[in-house]
């Protein structure tokens, strides 16, 4: 089972589509120490961005991704 000590997991719908898009977002997310882990599911229609962080909330992430020039909205439970 995927059981790491769970920090908050934040899930977003984005338009991060290809490798170049991911690289652009990576430059921002990798640089932010508050982001513990992240990945984009490129096979999903919503191009889901998944973030693990102890202290960031959704607004922070949306702001970061917007700055890179991409859409980003929280996927509700």
């Amino acid at each position: 089972m995927y059981l790491e000590p769970v920090s908050e997991i934040l899930i977003f719908k984005t338009n991060i589509l290809d490798i170049q898009d991911i690289e652009k977002v990576a430059s921002v997310l990798d640089a932010d120490a508050r982001v513990k882990k992240w990945n984009v599911d490129r096979e999903d229609v919503d191009h889901v961005l998944r973030i693990q962080s102890d202290c960031l909330d959704c607004r922070h992430i949306i702001e970061l991704v917007h700055k890179c020039g991409y859409e980003c909205e929280e996927l509700p439970d």
Binding site: I11, N39, E43
Partner: peptide
Amino acid sequence: VSPATIYIYFKDRDDLIIQ
């Protein structure tokens, strides 16, 4: 469940299949 809920447990589709 909502798609977001699945992503709480699994990183992405490949991770889901492997897990």
